[in-house]
């Protein structure tokens, strides 16, 4: 049995004793995660047989995967939408509002400029703006999923957030470039 097809529970929210929703109580999620890992982590069975250790690794892997999924907003949204039968189509659906795309291009140019001129202050400002915008998108996403239950509109927002995530990665590598 491989870790991938191993199923400890019906869904990740249940595993941690949470109600499925986009808004999650981070502290509660974390303490439930720690309680579960406290039982299943391989360190708890390091002195036992190979079979037990293998099993512990599979359990612990699944708990880690569940936790990471619920902890990160995009992954959490993707997971929730898939539970409602909605695919976020991040690879296939490239139709985005024109103004959003133009804004994204401007962001990227600004990041590239900051990296080129080794302007850490400009990069930090972009970083802060990107984070504010991301939080705002996440707030809107929470409304779409939890209140409006409009999963198709929510999928559009996940795709937008995916752009922001890629932008964050670019800002990160720009920091690295300036460091070098």
């Amino acid at each position: 049995m491989s870790a991938a097809d191993f199923d400890l529970s019906e869904n990740y929210f249940q595993l941690f004793g949470l109600t499925p929703s986009f808004e999650v109580d981070a502290a509660r999620l974390e303490s439930a995660f720690r309680a579960l890992q406290g039982q299943v982590h391989p360190d708890k069975s390091a002195h036992l047989s190979d079979a037990d250790q293998r099993l512990a690794m599979q359990r612990s892997t699944l708990v880690n995967e569940a936790y990471q999924t619920l902890k990160h907003p995009i992954r959490r949204a993707r997971y929730l939408l898939s539970q409602h039968g909605v695919d976020t189509q991040e690879e296939t659906n490239t139709v985005m509002p024109v103004d959003f795309l133009i804004e994204q291009m401007e962001w990227r140019e600004a990041v590239a400029d900051a990296a080129r001129s080794r302007d850490a202050a400009a990069l930090e400002e972009l970083d802060a703006r990107m984070k504010t915008d991301t939080r705002e998108l996440e707030r809107q996403l929470a409304v779409k999923i939890d209140a409006a239950r409009d999963y198709v509109a929510a999928a559009d927002m996940v795709r937008k957030l995916r752009f922001m995530e890629k932008l964050a990665e670019e800002i990160d590598s720009a920091y690295d470039e300036i460091d070098r």
Binding site: L8, F16, G17, L18, R28, S31, A35, L36, Q39, V40
Partner: peptide, 20 residues
């Protein structure tokens, strides 16, 4: 048995009370 123990550990308790 593990599932049973996990269920036992999590049932009847408020999850936020489960602390290490």
């Amino acid at each position: 048995r593990m599932d049973k123990s996990v269920t036992q550990a999590l049932s009847g308790k408020n999850i936020s009370d489960l602390e290490i």
